[in-house]
Design a protein around this nucleic acid. Structure first.
Lengths: 267, 267
DNA sequence: CTTTTCAAAGAACACTGTTCACCACGCGAG
DNA sequence: CTCGCGTGGTGAACAGTGTTCTTTGAAAAG
């Protein structure tokens, strides 16, 4: 990172040029904030905790970070560092969209309560533009009409954030109440549905087995598949319309996802 | 509510049986909390503010409400009071699902920052079960396979909450920064996309007109339509499978939404 | 009437984000 | 080498927060 040479004892000009304590910086503050977040959770993430983590006075933070909100903003931006999306491929746009969604969720899961911070961040920060561009490109080559291609990324991201947020909620609830495992919790909730009065809630009782996701990711995968199929329907529609109007000037292999080789099976 | 008779002046046993000040109750605390929420917003909604609204000491609240979290829970439950869903109609399930989504969003919009509180609430409270039952029923009569019908309500609600939450975020940002109107903000953001370097962000520039929703509800309507089409695709799939296997024992008018009379146009 | 009971009050505790006067220390100027 | 100077860390303070505990007052019960 730094090309600093070790200081020779007799070289007075270099003596303590690199001070014993690494200087404070926004970068280091964000690092510490993430450490506190993972250890204590969002609710107990305070400026004082971050300062303590760095062995520094609270007020020292404010020379590098103007407020707690700005600290959140900086933490949010980290989410998009080193996030490279593959080049859009019309033949596999469905899988690529699904992979984007999975990648986004995986990033939000990397730190405790990170989804809370993600939903606070302003979504047009310069750092997110490359991903946005890639995603919009992907939706265009998939054959979506402009107004859908422009909105799809936002819609998908909104869902991902919302999903991660609720996942967080459950995790925190589990953490503070008796620490029972997810399978146990799932079983008891399933029982709750099965035990409902079947005259008033016949369908909840009938579907008790399906009201809770069976694995950690099943529900997310299903949701993403639903959204992708919905998008595909718009692509088909656009392809039909273009085909009917101009006699198929668009490459038919480009638009419309149904029946493409990457159509995933269940799970 | 109460069958209290008017107090006669000479009846000492009834004197002040109904005290001059209406007694405190969880109900009244929730009322006051909503008043404070609308006036001050979520960030400044504190137990002290609520107590002040009621002209009462802070500690008095804690005899009716065990914590601020429980107050949030009670506020959350209010969301579902008097929310009647129409009886599921297989012929119009698409419109009914869309109406459910619109109704949910409308409820979240009824109070400032309400989405923040909605995302905190535990989703299996007894108060929400009737709506859940109606929704699951609707998805079943639409012909969705069980595992999709069981998840669809949760997925849709997650999206609605996430959408309302982000809408809140924007509204608050607008409120605190110069109060510029939404059309103005939209125009400047649109310009932001149009002015991006077109060598690095060709598609964002090309779709600058479509990156922001043109009206308040356009993006939400589109998202709901995408989800409904995705669900419909599962219904079709199930109908085909059932048709191929058992020779069409299921009522063909029940399953599969494509081409039904309520398929909405754009808008 | 007295006694019991229980909701409301008030003060206190341990926190929070943020600001401000102070001060030490490394740097360049002289 | 010495002298200001300014950057950046310090500690105290302010105005809040959620929550708890003890005290009080007034209504209900006996």
């Amino acid at each position: 990172m730094s090309d600093e040479l070790p200081a020779l004892p007799w070289d007075r000009s270099r003596r303590r040029a690199v001070p014993a304590r690494i200087p404070l910086s926004a970068e280091r503050i964000v690092d510490a904030a993430y450490t506190v977040l993972d250890r204590e959770g969002f609710e107990k993430l305070s400026m004082r905790q971050v300062a303590a983590e760095l062995g520094v006075a609270v007020s020292a933070l404010y020379t590098h970070v103007s407020s707690k909100d700005e600290l959140f903003e900086l933490m949010y931006i980290r989410l998009f560092k080193d996030w490279d999306l593959p080049d859009p491929d019309p033949a596999h746009w469905r899988r690529q969209v699904a992979d984007f969604a999975r990648g986004g969720l995986a990033r939000l899961r990397k730190h405790r309560d990170l989804a809370r911070i993600s939903m606070i961040g302003v979504p047009f920060s310069p750092e997110v533009l490359p991903q946005m561009e890639q995603l919009v490109t992907l939706f265009r080559v998939a054959g979506l009409p402009d107004r859908v291609a422009g909105a799809a990324g936002d819609i998908l991201s909104t869902f991902i954030d919302g999903y991660a947020f609720e996942e967080n909620m459950w995790e925190n609830r589990r953490r503070e109440s008796a620490e029972i495992s997810w399978p146990e919790m799932r079983a008891s909730l399933q029982q709750f549905f099965a035990d409902l009065p079947s005259d008033r809630f016949p369908n909840l009782v009938a579907l008790a087995d399906h009201m809770l996701p069976s694995s950690e990711d099943e529900r997310f995968e299903l949701a993403v598949e639903i959204i992708i199929r919905g998008l595909a329907s718009f692509a088909e529609e656009a392809a039909e319309e273009a085909g009917g109007r101009s006699g198929g000037s668009a490459d038919p292999g480009t638009a419309g996802g149904r029946g493409e080789p990457d159509r995933p099976g269940d799970g």
